[in-house]
Design a binder for these strands. Structure first.
Lengths: 219, 219
DNA sequence: GAAGAGTTTGGAACGGCGTTCCAGACATGT
DNA sequence: ACATGTCTGGAACGCCGTTCCAAACTCTTC
């Protein structure tokens, strides 16, 4: 009927799903067309029939895991933005490679959707038209920055050392810094051990939201 | 005398300088050990004597261009943070590959230095000790997020199309979006044409700084 | 149900990459 | 002059993304 595709055959969806599995297990460097061929029991040429190149495959895999993170939950604009942001944070936490990708790719479908959701809530907050673009951009860039940074942290933790172990080694590195040259970092090093990435991320969101409210009142 | 290094020979500095030149002209994909060998009229092995691997070379190149951006200008904490941020923004604008790198690498020397400077000014603002870590992190993540996003934009503009042309094509893409599904983006598309990246970046910095001030007053 | 056209497959092959290896050039201490 | 440790240049290795293409499928048309 119509297309000659059989359900036993390859498809873009099966390829993307396999790519996500490989990325979750082995990270971006583990995703090769040879590994993908082996997992799908096929050849490289067959994959290229469905996917243009590796970049497109990475983009599709990133969209796949991140689009499901875009919830519509929450009642107030404030809360909706927080839940949206947390959803992205948790997804990137579960799939660090996606964090690296979304910060690298411009005008990706997912990024546009996120930006749209943020913008709608910014508007609902009553931010005047001429400030909405700046406000939404600030939130988006902050979210993408945290995503990239979390991905970087997870990459250095992949393999032998756990995430906590990496945080621990960063903490002792910070503590070992010269207190004269790095007074601030030396001071916050102790907080690093007990801090919660997720809560700190949300604190940043709230900071920006507070700034947006303030700039509305005074302008 | 001591080391047998001759000034006509290779050195880590000469290698990093050549790498920066290549990166500025050809981007990250253009920086290969073969291109570097050709430019330095040597072999790959000689380079590896001074540099451990490509990652270290990229990190050194990123440090090289970004460390010079860390000024101490400004009189008020507010102003110092703004000038520091703008310095980073302008450097990433001139060397987009550095924007990609600094968002990818964790606990890089440059990142630590930036974080320290931000933290010191946060402290000077009078932010209480328990909030300083969150405040400085929010600013840092925002700055890194913008850096990564600018790098991504520049990458898609490399070669034939200019930066303005890319912005133009993004603007028409945004305008072409379904107004029902993307009301916000559709609406701000017109602002995209006339907006100034740099000013928008600073607006975000001010938004976060405003939020920091507000959270100080209410807590 | 055979023939032909179009779609999809699997794997060989290509060029380029990061990296390793190593024979030898060079400078230096004795 | 010789031995030693430092540094060089280029060949070689294994892996990558991608291309190519002959064969295998499927579907139409008679």
């Amino acid at each position: 009927m119509g297309t000659g595709t059989r359900n036993t055959g390859l498809s873009r969806e099966r390829i993307v799903a396999a790519a996500v599995e490989i990325l979750d297990v082995s990270g971006e460097s583990g995703l090769t067309f040879r590994a993908l061929s082996a997992k799908l029991r096929t050849g490289a040429g067959a994959i290229y029939w469905h996917v243009a190149n590796k970049g497109e495959l990475l983009a599709a895999a990133t969209d796949f895991v991140l689009l499901s993170a875009l919830t519509d939950e929450g009642t107030t604009p404030h809360e909706r933005i927080r839940l949206l942001a947390v959803g992205i944070f948790d997804t990137v936490d579960a799939h660090p490679w996606a964090g690296e990708q979304i910060a690298r790719l411009p005008s990706q479908r997912t990024t546009l959707r996120i930006f749209e959701r943020i913008g709608q809530q910014i508007q609902a907050l009553g931010v005047p038209r001429e400030s909405r673009f700046d406000s939404a951009s600030a939130l988006l860039n902050y979210i993408l920055g945290v995503a990239a940074q979390n991905a970087a942290l997870a990459r250095s933790a992949s393999g032998e050392t756990s995430r906590d172990a990496v945080l621990e080694s960063v903490a002792s590195l910070w503590e070992g810094l010269d207190g004269d040259e790095y007074p601030f970092i030396h001071d916050v090093a102790t907080q690093l051990r007990s801090h919660d990435d997720r809560e700190q991320f949300l604190a940043g969101i709230d900071l920006i939201l507070a700034g947006i409210s303030l700039s509305m009142g005074t302008k």
